[in-house]
Design a protein around this nucleic acid. Sequence first.
RNA 1: GGGCAGUUAGCUCAGUUGGCAGAGCAUCGCCCUUACAAGGCGAGGGCCACAGGUUCAAAUCCUGUACUGCCCACCA
Length: 897
Amino acid sequence: MAETLPKGYEPQDVERRWRGHWEKSGTFTPSPDDPGEPYSIVIPPPNVTGALHIGHALNLTLIDVLCRHARQKGKNVLWIPGTDHAGISTQNVVERALAKEGKSRKDLGREAFVERVWQWRADYGHRILEQIAALGCSVDWSRLRFTLDDGLSAAVRKVFVQLYNEGLIYRGDYIINWCSRCHTALADDEVEHEEQPGRLWKVAYKLADGDGEIVIATTRPETIPGDTAVCVHPEDERYAGLVGRRVVVPVLGREIPVIADSYVDREFGTGALKVTPSHDHNDWLLGQRHGLEFLQVIDEDGRMKAESGPYAGLTKEEARAKIVADIAAAGLDRGEEPLAHAVGRCYRCHTVVEPHVSRQWFVATTKMAPAARAAVPELTRLFPETWLKTYYHWLDTIRDWCISRQIWWGHRIPAWTCERCGELIVAETAPGTCPRCGSTELVQDEDVLDTWFSSALWPFSTLGWPEMTPELKRWYPTSVLVTGFDILFFWVARMMMMGQHFLGEPPFRDIYLHALVRDAQGQKMSKSKGNGIDPLAMIEKYGCDALRFTLTAFAAMGRDIRLSEERIEGYRHFVNKLWNAARFVLMNLPESAPPPVDLSGPVSLHEAWILDRLEAVKLDMDQALEDYRFNDAAQCGYKFLWNEFCDWYLELSKPDMASEDPAVRARAQYVLWLTLREILLLLHPIMPFVTAEIWAALPVPAGAEPTDIALEPYPPARPGCVRPDEARAMEFVQGVIVAVRTIKAELGISPTRRVRLLLHPGDEAQARILEQNRVCIETLARLEELVIDAAMPAPKAAASAVAGGCQVIVPLAGAVDLADELARLDKELAKLEKDMVDVNRKLRNESFVSRAPAEVVARERERAEKITDARDKLAARRELFTEALAENGEAGTASAN
RNA sequence: GGGCAGUUAGCUCAGUUGGCAGAGCAUCGCCCUUACAAGGCGAGGGCCACAGGUUCAAAUCCUGUACUGCCCACCA
């Protein structure tokens, strides 16, 4: 007997062993010179501060499935792992740690602070990597990257300098989103807009030169000190006479002009608005258009500046309250109403952002977007396609990207200013002297780059760019990017732009956007809600393969995943099923692999059937993965293993194992061995550990060495095993067996009780098939006697059914309630009658017969015949059965044997 | 205000080109049949959100409606 497996599958131990093996053996470290079509994926780099959450688990599982599958298909597969320095997030984490020591980053100073962050990374940055490993990811650890590595930093500087020289990076004063907590500018899409209840105040602005007033509406009275105009619509008759005159800013007493601009919505509020160019995005545009004064009254900490006069020093919240009160006191209050409006918040810390005018660096993404747009879908395919419109829309309406951040952790902007002459120098390395005046007093820009700037280079910076490395030649562009749709703009679109600009072609052949993982109620999982499912805890509890299979099985394209622990628990049963099926097979195999048998020659019907199914499953799973239909691939494997291999084939193989004919035994062993072997290969990309463990226990041909399943090719097609006719014949036999089981179950006959069975085959061919599979039927239907003879009269007191035209007759004996069988027959007949009405309605419909494809009509005709045949046979049986009932009189039970 | 999804069994979801509505879990029977009780064998359960339209034929295609969710957006 072959090596046996322990009775229960113990994932923890198995996972630890295989992980260690794969890491040490270098199994997943390819060489650019290896043969095969190149296949590469870059990991969406998790934040170095991060802890693995379920979204990562989904992402990494899907990538790993693709990589392992590609390896099986003979491709030269590279999966690069790495982490992102995550500027603001990481700085926040370290600042919080500092705060516990009662220190701020300013206490340390820039250099010491950055040193402290590196230390933090050395201490904790590996956690996320270990967690990636725990998922069984087949990444190439030898090529691990970090966005602040020397090589990647060099790439960042080169890109910055080149874009600057090309005029695609520029510096300018703009209104940007300012987070007063993180103390930095934020890009437009780093601001989350959130509808919340607010108020709309109406305030009177008195005319400077006499009586009259304009009532404006505002949601932000604290910005009144920064007003430099009042604006109305040019065609608004209500205010026609006022444009060009001057009004007085309430409380402050300054005079400002009334201007007209068609931007104003006459329907909203009072149709008049106050303009604060330094503290509102729209007002900033108005200010530019109309040459207004820019007056900053709120500082970088969210406090009122000296320019706000009496409110100086207050927080903006305090200022709002005081200003509202002062306006009321001055008799300028013209009412207020509740108004829900969107307020922007920092996506990192959720502080309300303040529009703020300052000098920042920008990438002219408006110029780079068209190429990224045009590449899809011609050069890069997007899955699911439904994201196309969103992608296009974003690129079509894109604004330039603010890339400077006023923090310390990140890539420092490679720009220097000459203290003496003011010259701006942008260079990859620090310049020694000013090229204009020769001064050595050069000061580097204090700011660092947006984290997404280095992420945008990830697909080629990780491959060694700007050096033309063998890796870059071999694996760029990458095969597919797998990521969540939530970073389509942050990351994906920007990688497209950078990849095209610097490498001349987009960085991926395909982009697969997967769903978000939500909880069972459909809520986004988050720490604050406490509804998260911790993947590591799940791995601990149910095993990695169960988690991976669950995530794969639910990854239907374009749909969110509602995950709950019960799901994972459910799929653990599947892992266990595989384990036990393998145990059974191993118990029945010799020590060495069974010698090959010609499977295209004569085999028994159930063997032909399972081999035929196996061929179909190989094709289906392969195609599903090619199409990124992960759920279909998982489902397909699940059904084949459980519902076909275990439920039928293993049971059918049992009599073969007990056969006295050594040839039958040998062939059964070979088919068992081979089928299990290929099932393991098919499931391996989804469930690497349990399949590896079983594979290792599977006997190999005498003299051969056991292999590593991770290096085995995808099971090749075996054309001789495609036998649809025999597969159909087997399905007929299954139908007969199910009919007997159903009769037993519905008549309350114990499944273990052996009964006699009479079969009236529909024709000679059926009779032959049934005869050849006598043992199968006897075993699976649990019979004490089987008679296959259309001429053999059936006893009146018998339960009956029709399966594929064959009458299935179970003579009733003992304490069976005959009324049950009558009810059963009537139910069955009613169903057939209904089917017949349906099918006849179609066939009697002249236009159906004439217009539907001939093939569909023929199918319906065939169906009608089958239904009629079954109905007639059952009706005849019912006649006889009622006679039996009458003969039995009040007894109501059969005593036929 | 625009855009995109979703609505199918009690729950969570599949359903590729229109052609007999499926799975898992849950429920209800019967079984400890020597791989597995984390199991086996059966059963019940659906106006495919609503209203129109196209078609021989619609869960599927078109139009509209109603909810639900997400994304984008400068009504202060």
